[in-house]
Nucleic acid binder design. Structure first.
Length: 278
DNA sequence: CACGAGACCTGTTCGC
DNA sequence: TGCGAACAGGTCTCGT
């Protein structure tokens, strides 16, 4: 469940804690376990285990789809990829079958990185920017305004869908929220970025913001067996709505493949135009 | 620079 | 019922 709203929901939960349990800031790592070696991008498991022992979490934040933990003198970075989940459980709870890395904390709880498909990664590093510097502006960065976004789009000839999912262009959007944002903006996913008018670019930025904020307000989306209590899946207009009627015009929602990813859209509301300009 | 194919992984659902 | 194919919220690397 790894797009910006889901990662933000996890960041908030870990920062503030849940039902009585305190959050991560202030907690010290007593012991750690690495069950799947490749989950650690860096360093090697034995080094990781010895370096993180005794360190205290200072803060929890998010950059794009990365969770960022200050744990002086290092930063712990986590990317959930397709199936990762990060949660605090009672220390007495037995290890789950897909737990990849666990950190025992000083209050009888445990931070667990559970990841069925093993695509997720963690970095323990003194130089987090070396990992994060390739990211474009955060999709919810308040400094990102229509004029700037328009010129970003003007400089690219790619199709909107793969471009918006490119984390070096804009950080945070994935398959769900890209499809939903393009629907709200009434833009075809295959339209070329440099063909948009200023008005269309502005509409797209608004759509991205509103879709992400809606997602966060619903604690993200929960689909299939990956469930975290989010409910935004009940408010999808196009994602996985193939064959259903468009909530806006009644046309049938279509599915196609763009950039090797499933893409859902309303053929009527999001009609393709060779030139988006008038 | 833009794009497609293949890797990396496990689990669920679909089609015959 | 059974079994293989298709598909899943992401990204990386390589070839054209």
């Amino acid at each position: 469940m790894p797009e910006l709203p889901e990662v933000e929901t996890i960041a908030r939960t870990l920062r503030l804690g849940t039902n009585g349990q305190p959050g991560l800031p202030g907690r010290t790592v007593s012991q750690s376990h690495v069950y799947w070696t490749r989950t650690l991008a860096v360093p090697q498991p034995d080094v990781f285990i010895s370096q993180i022992q005794g360190l205290t979490f200072k803060s929890v934040s998010r950059r794009g789809k990365f969770l960022v933990f200050e744990i002086p003198p290092y930063h712990l970075l986590t990317h959930l990829r397709m199936s990762g989940d990060l949660k605090i459980v009672p220390e007495a709870e037995p290890a789950g079958s897909h737990d990849r890395v666990t950190l025992d904390l000083d209050n009888a709880t445990r931070l667990v990185f559970n990841d069925t498909r093993k695509f997720g990664r963690m970095w323990l590093t003194p130089e987090p920017e070396k990992v994060l510097h390739t990211l474009g502006p955060d999709a919810l960065d308040p400094e990102l305004e229509p004029a700037g976004f328009f010129s970003m789009l003007q400089s690219k000839k790619r199709m909107l869908k793969p471009l918006l999912m490119d984390q070096s262009f804009l950080a945070g959007l994935g398959n769900i929220y890209t499809d939903e944002a393009l629907f709200l903006a009434r833009l075809h996913p295959a339209a070329r970025a440099d063909s948009l008018t200023f008005e269309q670019a502005s509409r797209l930025l608004n759509a991205i913001h509103s879709v992400l904020v809606e997602g966060i307000n619903h604690n993200g989306a929960s689909i299939d067996w990956v469930y975290r209590g989010g409910s935004f899946q009940n408010h999808f207009n196009v994602y996985r709505q193939t064959g259903k009627k468009c909530s806006h015009c009644g046309a049938v929602i279509a599915r196609t493949v763009i950039g090797q990813r499933s893409t859902h859209y309303c053929p009527a509301c999001q009609a393709y135009q060779e030139k988006e300009e008038v």
